[in-house]
Write a protein that binds this DNA or RNA. Structure first.
Lengths: 226, 226
DNA sequence: AAATCATAAAAAATCGATATTTTTTGTGCA
DNA sequence: TGCACAAAAAATATCGATTTTTTATGATTT
């Protein structure tokens, strides 16, 4: 009997069309290639992602609970619209979860945890330096490494469920940012934030780290043109 | 064009077999009728809930993101097992979310909010009184009204996403409690907690209300026997 | 004439049956 | 006991049928 019940919160969908569709659609929604408010028609998605109806609908169903897709019975699926109220809600919820997790991490984090942060920051820094030269090419990459850096900061928090929720609102926040800028546009202030947050965190200065992180999360997206 | 994109976090699955299956399975998992660690075989569930493969799998997919079902690619679905670590994780996450939401509610709640709390408490009190006489008959009802009472307490919190996450961990916490007791067994201390929490909340004594709520959430389930 | 309502046609979502693929179980052999 | 292979079971995916919603059209009312 090698069929063990997996731990809660597990979602191993490797090697299935469901998994492929799930990841692809998730990626496209976060990147705002599937635009906020857009109707997700099954027939269209089938040709776009090259899978049948069933795996497609199952992937969409999974995304519903993550808030990246909304469903109405017998009416189909949509990309949820982006509104100011929702964005503020997402930002403040992210502040609550992420500052708690950062405090907890600073309290119990070990050498291994510190090393992961330094490594993630290094990778992030690389893209940030490259961003000035070729913004378009490094934009998507920046978001991914930004996510990994923030995850590393709070990885020592023992509450797995809280981290899971943080992941969800992070993705949602990511999407609102990306949908608000037509062209890649990242403030150098954001980059500076990262350095300061890391320094305060490694110095175990919880109060300062949390304050910096709050400002960082609340920082509004750069206006499109300048 | 009456097809409007619904707000994020919406899940209206009315009148679909998916919705029926989703609610039924969710209910049975929380009530531990589908037991922790149990394999969820599609063929069995089809006869049990009287629906076909497609709506069944979609319902299960939705439950995966809520943590009430786990999935392994090509291996199928399980009811997640209950472990001590997971339970502590769930409890502490619930404390973080629910105390924040209670504080926020006390800060901004209006008359309407207060009325809902009093009403929910009244309904809950009724079942709690009935519980002494017929525990088996009022057990499931108690859980539902308990949930409604706790939701009423924090309903004025403006962060919809935080409330949504609270709902998820509440259900998970509910399940761990129910799976730990073979026979209905609720402590009178729990009932007393409710009264005190309500009083402190309506008195707008945030510090006291939060302290009581923390103790209440952390209170372990009654041991099965006496 | 404009607006409302009913009806029909088209489109789309939903569902179940069947075929395919993968995993699990069972059996014989080294 | 361990391994290879075959059989069975189970999950997954595709397809087509059914149901529901949406759109289009025309008649009726104000």
């Amino acid at each position: 009997m090698s069929s063990e019940a997996p731990r809660p919160g597990t979602s191993d969908h490797s090697n299935t069309l469901i998994g492929k569709a799930f990841e692809s659609i998730r990626k496209d929604i976060i990147a705002s290639e599937l635009k906020p408010g857009e109707k997700l028609r099954i027939a269209q998605l089938r040709t776009r992602y090259g899978v049948g109806t069933s795996p497609l609908r199952e992937a969409l169903s999974r995304l519903v609970s993550e808030g990246l897709v909304t469903a109405r019975g017998q009416r189909g699926f949509w990309v949820p619209p982006v509104s100011v109220e929702d964005s503020e809600d997402i930002v403040e919820t992210r502040v609550v979860l992420e500052t708690y997790a950062l405090r907890a991490s600073i309290k119990v984090g070990d050498d291994e945890w510190e090393g992961q942060i330094v490594g993630a920051y290094h990778n992030l820094r690389r893209v940030e330096q490259r961003f000035a030269d070729e913004p378009a090419g490094s934009f998507a990459e920046w978001w991914e490494r930004n996510r990994l850096f923030h995850e590393a900061l709070i990885a020592a928090c023992p509450l797995k469920w809280l981290l899971r929720f943080q992941h969800i609102v992070f993705d949602l926040h990511n999407r609102t940012h990306r949908s608000s800028m037509q062209t890649p546009n990242l403030s150098p202030d954001l980059f500076e934030d990262h350095r300061l947050i890391m320094e305060a965190t490694l110095a175990r200065d919880a109060r300062k780290a949390v304050e910096l992180l709050e400002h960082h999360i609340r920082r509004p997206p750069e206006p499109a043109g300048e």
